[in-house]
Simulated scan of single mutants.
Amino acid sequence: MSANSRLTIAAHALAWIGLYQRQGHEVATSEKIAASANTNPVVIRRLLGELRRAGLVESRRGAGAGWSLARELGSITLLDVYEAVEAGPLFAMHRTTPDQGCVVGHGIQPAMRGIYQDIEETLRHKLARVTLEKVLRDVLAAPRQPL
């Protein structure tokens, strides 16, 4: 089972756009953001589309096309980003109903549902406490590794 990187890539894109704008640029292209994240620009455009629908970024078409922040980094939390790019619950139940005649099959989903709700509540609480401003500060403070 592979880990989902959508939240990380979306946070990367927002922090990158924020820094780019602070350096005096109005808009950022998905190609430049993708180069920083070392991914395909299509991946970045899809995520930015979701962030736009959530009101976190704006896009400009035509001459000078690109992406800009719709809000300051200090007013965007990781929970805002998570809710914009992560569809559905963090954990899922079985794809098919377990054997209800089995004691474990009958009780596993209610038991796990309660555990998952607690985990999701904790995750949301922690993500709500971290702004993208803090993420960018931590990025800029991180020691650079030699290539």
Rank of each mutant, 00 (worst) to 15 (best):
G24T: 05
E72M: 11
S2P: 15
E120A: 15
S75L: 09
L19D: 13
A28V: 03
L123V: 13
I115Q: 08
E26F: 00
E133K: 08
A84I: 08
I17Q: 01
E72W: 10
L78E: 05
L132R: 00
G24R: 05
G49I: 03
P41I: 01
R61M: 05
W67L: 04
A63E: 09
A10S: 09
I108M: 11
V103F: 02
L127E: 04
I119Q: 07
A84Y: 03
E120T: 13
P98V: 02
S36E: 13
V27F: 07
P146F: 05
Q145F: 14
A54F: 12
M1A: 15
K134L: 09
S59N: 10
P143S: 12
Q100D: 00
A37Y: 02
W67E: 03
L14Q: 03
A11E: 03
I17Y: 02
R129V: 04
R61V: 06
G105R: 06
P146Q: 00
I115C: 09
A13K: 01
T122D: 08
Q21P: 00
E120C: 09
R53I: 00
R6D: 13
G107I: 01
S2R: 15
D118F: 11
P110C: 06
A70Y: 00
Y116V: 11
K126P: 00
D99W: 01
T122L: 11
V43T: 15
S5Q: 12
E58F: 00
I119W: 14
E133C: 06
L127F: 08
I119S: 07
R137S: 10
L69Y: 05
L73D: 03
L7V: 12
R22S: 10
L147H: 14
R144V: 11
A142W: 14
V130K: 11
R144Q: 12
V85L: 07
T8Y: 15
Y116I: 11
T77K: 04
L127T: 04
L48M: 11
E31T: 12
E121P: 04
W16M: 05
A84K: 02
E83T: 13
P89Q: 15
Q109Y: 07
M112N: 06
V85H: 02
R129C: 08
A87P: 12
D118G: 13
M1R: 12
V130M: 10
V27R: 05
S68I: 03
S36L: 12
R124F: 11
E31P: 01
R95E: 11
D118Q: 14
V104N: 04
L56W: 00
W16Y: 15
R137E: 13
A11M: 06
A111M: 12
I44C: 05
V103R: 07
G101P: 00
P146H: 01
W67C: 04
A141D: 10
A84L: 08
L48A: 06
E50P: 03
E133F: 04
A3T: 14
W67A: 03
G18T: 06
N4A: 15
A70N: 07
A142S: 14
L127V: 01
W16A: 06
W16P: 01
L132M: 07
G74S: 12
G74Y: 04
Y116C: 13
Y82P: 02
L147T: 12
P41T: 02
L90E: 13
L69Q: 02
L78K: 07
L79I: 10
Q21D: 05
C102V: 06
E86Y: 14
I115G: 06
Q23P: 00
Q23V: 01
A65S: 13
D138H: 14
Q145D: 09
L56E: 00
A11D: 05
Y116L: 10
